[in-house]
Design a protein around this nucleic acid. Structure first.
Length: 581
RNA sequence: CGGGAUGUAGCGCAGUUUGGUAGCGCACCUCGCUUGGGACGAGGGGGUCGCACGUUCGAAUCGUGUCAUCCCGACCA
């Protein structure tokens, strides 16, 4: 490809609306252009990168025994009603109507469709197990798209679905996919960590995410991990043991209600009572699917909202507003506000019974401090079941913090940020049962499939690769997913000798299957170098004045290391590298 | 959806306070000159100033409404 004909426009400045480096660089280097919020044009360079990632995914999925197919982007409401997700999925599901006023949606994921395909085509145990996948654009109407390709509304995803007869079969396929994923990301030049995670709206029980560790803002997930063993988990799923020695028994000898004026926060309450926060049972008010939920947790700990939501059996959670809390107090006959809430005596709100869920941290506390739903007062010296009832549900709803102890080996946990580029779920019969997707077993009995699903964000993987490989000059693509392997740069297009040598290298490389660009533009050398670095060609072969000694310069973008060598040698290095991919 | 901000040429921005018919840098076209890290000179093309209504002799500028975009919080590949 001639640079003069390559459809790319590099910019001198970063776009003003970009926040993270992958977004900034992909726009500035001419890979993508925003069409509308969260929706991007993939320009020719970007499309080459995406196709490379897709092909790696394809090769590894096929090698793992999966079969590719393609499902529709537009889906009918009826299937989503069968699975029950038309109601549950929420506003991320982009709903629309056709000319006959039939309700449809844009596919955010394809469990419903694949399940309908399976139940039509997989009637016998003899056909199982099977794993089907596709690579396709998805649409999720995110509340707040951001970070360019990392959180778009339209994005490219590989989604695979497995059908098994038994849980053991599913677990085997799950392992199979985990191995394939590890290979895929490695081939893409990415170091990923496989972490335990919550299974979220897609449902099911066991799930893991593949995280690119970044330690920048682009990593939207906190990952807790242990250096001493293999434990690692997303913060929404991480568990830990607490170091011993926290003071959880107060010195009061009897329970009473005392004045605690203006203590709206745990900190103020600690200061006023001159006690550590570990003696306080904190009560937080949440709304889970419209229902009021009180969360009780030790004063020094934070609630992990996903855990709480799961404990409450909901699919949506938010903290209650100050207004809602006051209203809730009012209808239950109290006059109190945030800071003074406690679990006793609260019956119902908004037509729902109030659920109380306690974190395990409060269970062993004694002579503690707790809100009693009276303004400027708290209960002190309280004990469970003597002064206040221990809630029926006591479970783990706590957000893990770095330094707490690994649940497996007891060593301190560390935290880092990660970009989720893939995930794997054990779905079980979550879709096959409600959608009546069954096969006949050896005994002629109908059985629902045991399903798994496995996703990879293709466009997100590309962006994550940029997050992991860049410098102040631009992108440093891993060779396997770079849009082109190399660029040949004749420093002066007017110099016949330089042009002749450059062309020879270009032709040789192409002949050996290399994807290569020749910068034939009548530009100054600086412009060509800047563009080559920004776009991120892994190899640059610079044909300049050293041609007098018969040499060219060979530059490796990853290290910016430059070596003088014969033109044939330079070509050879590139050819060897791509043959080793 | 709550809080904050911004919409002026493909990109980055000034002009709005004090109303007078739109400008700078980059990019693009032509010519000259230059050719090892985003040169220089001359000339040129491109904008219903987000949109609508209003105030006014006159609106990018003032008012009202509306749409879009971005940032901070709750969801996810």
């Amino acid at each position: 490809m001639k640079m003069s004909k390559l459809f790319v426009q590099t910019l001198r400045e970063f776009p003003s609306d970009a926040e993270v480096i992958s977004h900034k660089l992909l726009v500035r280097a001419g890979y993508i252009r925003k069409l509308t919020s969260g929706v991007y044009n993939y320009l020719p360079l970007m499309w080459r990168v995406l196709k490379k990632i897709e092909n790696i995914v394809r090769e590894e999925m096929d090698a793992a025994g999966a079969q590719e197919l393609l499902m529709p982007f537009v889906q009918p409401k009826e299937l989503w009603e069968e699975s029950g997700r038309w109601e549950v999925y929420g506003k991320e599901l982009m709903r629309l109507r056709d000319r006959h006023n039939r309700e449809m949606c844009l596919g955010p994921t394809h469990e419903e469709i694949i399940t309908s395909i399976a139940r039509d085509g997989l009637k016998s145990y003899k056909q199982l197990p099977v794993n089907l996948y596709q690579i396709q654009s998805k649409f999720r109407d995110e509340v707040r798209p951001r970070f360019g390709l990392l959180r778009g509304r339209e994005f490219i995803m590989k989604d695979a679905y497995s059908f098994d007869m038994t849980q053991e079969g599913l677990e085997k396929e799950y392992e199979n996919m985990a191995k394939a994923y590890t290979k895929i990301f490695k081939r893409c030049g990415l170091n990923t960590k496989m972490v335990q995670s919550d299974s979220g709206a897609i449902g099911g029980s066991v799930s893991h995410e593949f995280m690119v560790i970044t330690d920048t803002d682009a990593g939207e997930n906190d990952v807790f991990y242990c250096d001493s063993c293999d434990y690692s988990a997303n913060s929404n799923h991480a568990v830990s043991k607490l170091p011993a020695g926290a003071n959880i028994t107060g010195e009061w000898t009897s329970a009473k209600i005392v004045d605690t004026p203006e203590t709206h926060s745990i900190e103020e309450l600690c200061d006023f009572l001159k006690i550590p926060s570990t003696l306080i049972v904190k009560t937080l008010v949440y709304i889970v699917d419209k229902k009021p939920v009180l969360a009780l947790i030790r004063g020094d700990k934070q609630v992990e909202e996903t855990k709480l939501m799961n404990a409450a059996g909901g699919s949506d959670i938010r903290i209650a507003t100050a207004g809602e809390i006051e209203e809730m107090m009012g209808v239950n006959g109290f006059d109190a506000a945030k800071g003074f809430i406690g679990p006793q005596g609260l019956k119902e709100y908004n037509g729902y019974e109030i659920t109380v869920i306690a974190d395990e941290t409060v269970k062993d506390m004694k002579n503690f401090v707790i809100g009693v739903n009276q303004k400027d007062k708290h209960g002190i010296g309280y004990n469970w079941d003597l002064d206040v009832k221990l809630p029926e549900t006591v479970t783990d709803i706590r957000l893990v913090e770095a330094g707490e102890l690994c649940p497996q080996c007891g060593k301190p946990l560390k935290v880092t940020r990660g970009i989720e580029v893939g995930n794997i779920f054990q779905l079980g019969t979550k879709y096959s049962k409600p959608m009546n997707a069954v096969y006949l077993d050896q005994n002629g009995k109908t059985q629902p499939y045991i399903m798994g699903c496995y996703g990879i964000g293709i466009s997100r993987t590309a962006a994550a690769a940029v997050e992991a490989h860049y410098d102040e000059h631009g992108i440093k693509w891993p060779l396997a997913i770079a849009p082109y392997h190399a660029i040949v740069i004749p420093v002066s297009t007017k110099d016949e000798e330089q042009m002749r040598v450059a062309n020879d290298i270009y032709v040789t490389l192409k002949k050996h299957g290399a994807e290569v660009v020749i910068d034939d533009r009548d530009e100054r050398a600086g412009v060509k170098f800047k563009d080559a670095d920004l776009i991120g060609f892994p190899y640059q072969i610079i044909v300049g004045k050293s041609i007098a000694e018969g040499n060219v310069e060979f530059k490796i973008r990853e290290t910016d290391e430059k070596t003088a060598m014969k033109p044939e040698e330079a070509a050879e290095v590139v050819i060897t590298a791509i043959n080793n991919l």
